[in-house]
Write a protein that binds this DNA or RNA. Structure first.
Length: 590
RNA sequence: GGACCCGUAGCUUAACUGGAUAGAGUCCUUGACUACGAAUCAAGAGGUUGCAAGUUCGAAUCUUGCCGGGUUCACCA
């Protein structure tokens, strides 16, 4: 608000004195950096030419003008081409009152734009791992942030439930499962099916080895192996709708879903609508064939269909194989089209998928555009970097993965042991304690993964992910619990009408940052970047702790006490809301 | 080889999208609990932002060229 006022005043000044037209929205006004005195800083360099004087002089005359013009500005300082403006203590106490009494401040904006966010989208042949965690937390948080900023969000995933991979587990189970079920052996469903997938791979390796020893090339041996043929037969059976195969498929996928549900439950993540590849994989092919008839694609002599994107700077890409079967790209075209049939009003669709598929999405979006789908422009790839381990890259083939369930169990246990060590929980019963350890452990993990800019590749250090000091989730949670403790003792007092002629720098800095909340959430929504919120809430926590350390709250009196309790209350609310946008809960005590 | 992405304190990372003396955390050294929660706060040390040019009043940010790393270019998903 004040920033806009300053910008307008600057534009008016330039118009009046120099007859220059400046769009007030282009005037740069920043929060003054901590090292300098002042609240907001006007960058005057862009105006020195029109004002025909040195930067310092330009800043001086702008400062004089602004101080006269705007009552909230009580002074200014000039350093080179930077004009630092000081706002009055009354201004900041009024800001606190305005923010606290604004019932919309930490609630969802209203809007009717429809947005679909896809994330997770696992295969059904193996359990979720650390890489999925970044994807899931990211997609979930982006959904929450956009919902908060007024979008109507449909959280979805496409479940890769068909194809050779699941047939492999199915065949292995058929051979060696002895009719067991996850329940009968006491295993989580996704883990149980994953076991048979690995078993298949082991057996295949042995068969290939045997064939290689008989003199076959390795590629040839893979094709010739009995297991490969059996699985291919199974896939054909499945596609032909063979009842026994379909039943087995349904049963085993069911086990996997039960396992996944358990994992999502612990993560605190849910979906609004699920797409299954088995429902949509045929749709893409007919769209592509139609496109071929319209002359949008090309067909080669062997019958395969390709899209030519050379004009767009890319290459040709296969859409339908010579034998008429489809590839990944074709299926994606189908599901995208399906989504717009289901939700014709979609204004944005977001694919949360790793950056190794950047090229794939470039091709997909261009192809959708070529097909003339008006909504092709609404598609966005939320691309994120891979997660590395201290030991190097994660490789699922080599078993170098961190299992999602194991990891969650570990972080919760770590939270448990360090909490018990602190010994502050003696009057909590066991159920409450267990709940707290979940909040802390899962919170630490989520914060660790969301803190880093999504686009960047990141390093996952297991020890740091459970740390509770420094830039961590538990640090923020601690600050919240601390605020709550103060508020329990001090009560909340009516802030309306408080006015102070002086406040400390700590209070000023905290209030200034608290007032930025909506700006941050707005930008985070637009840029689909939860790390912006993580950085912000860390700043708030640090500023509050500094304030808390230097300034007495409960021993203060009158308006000072009210103001400080108000700051505490707004801090707590801001932390809670920010964390909720990251999908992280906060404890009242810890 | 073509295309795209990334190089910031020992380590993990910020930087309001071109603004001030590049900011945190961690590690190391050192202080602060007989006033509201020490899972906290404060102080010190740690940087030629991979290298070199260019554009600009101003460059970690934009351009170009190197150096180093990654991803991708499948009738795989």
């Amino acid at each position: 608000m004040i920033r806009a006022k300053i910008a307008e005043a600057v534009a008016a000044f330039l118009k009046k004195e120099f007859e220059q037209d400046v769009d007030s929205s282009t005037v740069q006004i920043e929060v003054t950096r901590k090292e300098f005195e002042g609240d907001y800083t006007l960058v005057v360099f862009p105006f020195v030419r029109m004002m025909k004087c040195k930067p310092e002089q330009a800043a001086e005359s702008l400062g004089d003008y602004l101080q006269d013009e705007l009552a909230d500005i009580v002074g200014f300082g000039v350093i080179k081409g930077f004009l630092n403006l000081n706002l009055s203590a009354e201004y900041w106490t009024n800001q606190l009152e305005a923010t606290i009494t604004d019932t919309q401040w930490t609630s969802k904006r209203v809007g009717d734009e429809l947005m679909l966010v896809e994330f997770s989208s696992p295969n059904t042949n193996k359990p979720l791992h650390l890489g999925h965690l970044r994807n899931i937390f990211l997609g979930h948080s982006v959904s929450l942030i956009n919902e908060f900023e007024g979008k109507n969000v449909v959280k979805t995933q496409i479940i890769n439930d068909r194809g050779v991979h699941i047939c492999k587990s199915m065949f292995a189970w058929k051979m060696h499962g002895k009719g067991e079920t996850p329940k009968s052996v006491g295993m989580k469903g996704d883990k149980y099916v994953g076991k048979y997938y690995v078993m298949y791979d082991d057996h295949l390796k042995k068969q290939v080895e045997a064939l290689v020893n008989k003199g076959l090339e390795e590629d040839q041996a893979k094709k010739e192996a009995m297991l490969t043929k059996k699985v291919q037969e199974m896939l054909i059976d499945w596609e032909n709708g063979d009842e026994e195969t379909r039943e087995l498929w349904k049963m085993m996928n069911g086990w996997v879903y039960e396992g996944f549900d358990e994992t999502y439950e612990r993560m605190g993540v849910s979906f609004d609508y699920l797409y299954y590849e088995s429902d949509t994989y045929l749709k893409g092919k007919s769209i592509v064939e139609k496109g071929l008839d319209q002359g949008l694609f090309i067909q080669k002599d062997d019958g395969s269909i390709w899209v030519d994107l050379k004009q767009e700077g890319l290459d040709q890409k296969l859409l339908v194989r010579a034998d008429g079967t489809t590839v990944y790209m074709t299926q994606d075209i189908g599901t995208a089209a399906q989504r717009y049939e289901d939700y014709p009003n979609l204004e944005r669709i977001v694919y949360t998928v790793g950056d190794e598929q950047d090229y794939h999405f470039q091709v997909l979006f261009l192809t959708l555009h070529k097909l003339g789908f008006s909504w092709a422009e609404a598609c966005r790839h939320l691309s994120y970097g891979m997660v590395d381990l201290p030991t190097g890259k994660m490789k699922s083939r080599e078993g170098k993965v961190v299992d999602a369930d194991d990891l969650m169990e570990e972080v919760v246990n770590a939270a448990k042991s360090s909490s018990l060590e602190k010994g502050k929980l003696n009057d909590m019963d066991e159920a409450q304690q267990a709940e707290l350890f979940e909040i802390l452990g899962i919170g630490a993990l989520k914060f660790f993964l969301l803190r880093v800019d999504p686009r960047k590749r990141m390093l996952f250090n297991p020890e740091e992910s459970v740390a509770l000091t420094g830039d961590t989730g538990p640090f923020v949670q601690y600050t919240y619990a601390r605020c709550r403790a103060v508020l329990r003792k001090g009560g909340t007092e009516d802030i309306v009408g408080t006015s102070l002629s002086e406040i400390s720098d700590k209070e000023r800095h905290l209030m200034r940052e608290l007032r930025n909340f909506r700006q941050v959430t707005k930008e985070a929504a637009e840029s689909m970047n939860p790390s912006a919120i993580a950085s912000y809430v860390l700043d708030i926590a640090k500023l509050y702790n500094q304030f808390y350390h230097d300034i007495h709250i409960l021993n203060a009196e009158g308006d000072e006490r009210k103001f400080r309790l108000g700051l505490t209350s707004l801090t707590a609310q801001t932390i809670k809301t920010s964390m909720s946008l990251l999908g992280i809960r906060v404890p009242e005590r810890m």
